[in-house]
Write a protein that binds this DNA or RNA. Structure first.
Length: 436
RNA sequence: GGAGAGGUGGCAGAGUGGUUGAAUGCGCCGGUUUCGAAAACCGGUUAACCGCAAGGUUACGGGAGUUCGAAUCUCCCCCUCUCCGCCA
């Protein structure tokens, strides 16, 4: 949710922001609606004030006849008040969806661009491995060692579904455990287990609705009342960020640092035929997420953004997987973000043999939202002087699996088809050093 | 799924039609006192919106209604808790 006052004062900022993000919104229509609402509200409040005043006077009248006359005089005012209230409410209810649809303008330091093709490569870590043999894809490796069973997954749950089996499941659990341990033990994040089945208000509050609604699974029968409907979350960001929804925190308790592993559900609507081999794009996966809720301070937000990005890099470095860090351009950061970094990890099977860029696949996404989510969630804090502010929120992937199994299997394969278990994961697999 | 109880300010808890945005207690903040602290005493302490201000409007789970006027009355919904049943 953007700041309505700011929209009134700087409409161009939002026009430009929407244009840079390739989002079609009619700012003028919003401003008109806002004007209409304000007028209706003032009208209603004036009338209501009159009514309240008269009511107080009636209460003080002792003489029954006088009282009766005064009450009779109020009849017509009552009609007017009701009509004005009706108008005011209608204007309000028409303004709200318009406001929800206005994207957060991208930050000044975000490169301008149309889509993912215009994203900026910031830097790389590690060198893509040169194979002395023809490397196998993760799908082949998984098949060979019976780590991932897509055939049975599809039979049971449809396309983009899978079973993780044996060491496949162990590897999956291992990376998530490693991620969780890193965030809690080393970086002081509080571990949380979040609901993945949430109300619409949580989805709207975190900015996944209304834009993006088609990506979420809706749970509930058709005949059920809207209030009984729940949605499966596509990330623990929802639970972690909405944890303090409608609360006023103490500034002294900020920043709040939370991490969670949760199962994530995504319809992947509009991606038919894309990334169908293996487990790159699936409907259900597990992810360790990090969320920071901090003071309303742009510099602090930017600082946290970098820091959180660093935590994820640290995880990839522990796994010794080559990656590159991308600054996403204005057209690729989505409606809710002010800025976004992606981390792409080297996946040999995606490499086309010519352009290195082809071999990197997205594994992480770090978002900086300023007060956009906090406004929608009504998530605030009180500063030392007692003033109330909206918090800032940020989030980033720590690790998502099975997608991360792709670079692990492919980068750690040996010429005989066996797979070396990354050192950092061996303790989580009972010391197992090699698969196959 | 069956039966019952309840939802009021940070918390506890009054309040059943009129100056109650809300008693009282706790907590919190400030002051007096003290070498300092505790205790005691005094004062302050919900938020959103409109307004330069004075001031005004809204909100007692949510919605609808009755009324000149609703925390208080009526209807619908939601949520929480207890007991029974079922269940990981």
């Amino acid at each position: 949710m953007i700041d309505l006052k700011d929209l009134r004062e700087h409409p161009d900022k939002y026009r430009k922001g929407a244009r840079l993000k390739n989002v079609a919104v009619d700012i003028d229509a919003v401003l008109q609606m806002d004007e209409k609402r304000s007028a209706a509200m003032r009208e209603f409040e004036t009338l209501r004030a009159q009514q309240n005043k008269a009511s107080g006077e009636i209460a003080r009248l002792k003489d029954p006849a006088e009282k009766k006359a005064a009450v009779a005089r109020m009849q017509s005012l009552k009609q007017q008040v009701q009509a004005a209230q009706e108008q005011s409410r209608e204007a309000e209810s028409r303004l709200e969806p318009l406001l929800l649809s206005i994207p957060q303008p991208p930050d000044d330091d975000v490169p301008v661009g149309k889509d993912a093709a215009d994203n900026l490569v910031m830097y790389r870590w590690g060198e893509p491995r040169q194979f002395a043999f023809t490397p196998r894809s993760h799908a082949e490796l998984a098949q060979k060692h019976q780590l991932i069973d897509s055939d049975r997954g599809v039979r049971l749950a449809g396309s983009r579904s899978y079973f993780l089996v044996g060491k496949g499941a162990e590897l999956h659990n291992a990376v998530l455990r490693l991620a969780m341990d890193l965030m809690t033990r080393q970086h002081g994040f509080t571990a949380i287990n979040v609901p993945v089945l949430v109300r619409e208000s949580a989805m709207r509050g975190t900015g996944f609705f209304p834009a993006g609604r088609e990506q979420a699974y809706r749970v509930g029968e058709e005949h059920e009342a809207e209030d009984d409907v729940r949605f499966l979350t596509g990330t623990a960001e929802v639970g972690l960020t909405a944890f303090h929804m409608d609360e006023v925190l103490d500034e002294a308790d900020l920043p709040r640092k939370y991490t969670a592993v949760s199962t994530c559900f995504r319809r992947e609507a509009g991606t038919y035929g894309k990334d169908t081999a293996g487990v790159y794009r699936v409907h259900q996966f597990d992810k360790c997420e990090q969320v920071v809720i901090c003071r309303n301070d742009v510099d602090e937000s930017k600082q946290w953004h970098k820091t959180m990005l660093g935590y994820s890099e640290q995880l990839l470095q522990k796994l010794e997987l080559p990656y590159r860090v991308i600054q996403c351009c204005t057209g690729d950061i989505g409606v809710k973000n002010a800025a976004m970094f992606d981390i792409e990890t080297w996946m040999p099977s995606r490499f086309d043999g010519r352009d290195d860029a082809s071999g990197y696949g997205e594994t992480h996404s770090a978002s900086r939202l300023y007060e956009f989510q906090a406004r929608r969630l009504n998530l605030r804090y009180k500063d030392a002087s007692g003033k109330i502010h909206f918090c800032h929120t940020l989030n980033n992937t720590v690790v998502a699996s099975p997608r991360i199994l792709i670079p692990i299997l492919e980068n750690y394969q040996n010429d005989d088809g066996s797979i070396t278990v990354p050192q950092a994961l061996q303790p989580y697999l009972g010391g197992c050093e090699r698969i196959g």
